[in-house]
């Protein structure tokens, strides 16, 4: 029983770490003026979320989330940025 509780505690710690990391990356995505960097930071946030899905034992979601949120979504954002200006104006 102690083993299980320790395992859960470790899982909780990793979950807290990855979700807070996602929050921090989301904050920097919003304040970032360089849109390309913001897109890459957003991809980093998605990786943190993907790690969360893995910790919550949802590999099916993970498999769909990684290619879409890290690959396709980021590339679509970069494509949209390439059609407009790279730096956000004040």
């Amino acid at each position: 029983m102690v083993d299980v509780l320790l395992e859960i505690l470790f899982l909780e710690l990793l979950l807290a770490f990855s979700l807070t990391l996602a929050l921090v990356l989301a904050y920097f995505t919003i304040v970032q003026r360089d849109l390309v960097k913001a897109a890459v930071l957003s991809a980093g946030q998605s990786i943190a979320y993907a790690f969360t899905y893995y910790l919550l034992a949802a590999p099916d979601i993970l498999f769909a989330y990684i290619p879409i949120a890290v690959g396709i979504y980021t590339v679509l954002l970069l494509y949209a940025i390439s059609k407009t200006e790279r730096y956000e104006e004040l």
């Binding site: 859960i8 710690l13 807290a16 919550l56």
Partner: peptide, 17 residues
Amino acid sequence: LAAAVLAIALGATGYTP
């Protein structure tokens, strides 16, 4: 970050899974 990790380690959210 540290506060969130500590709070959850002390059982703020219950056992998530």
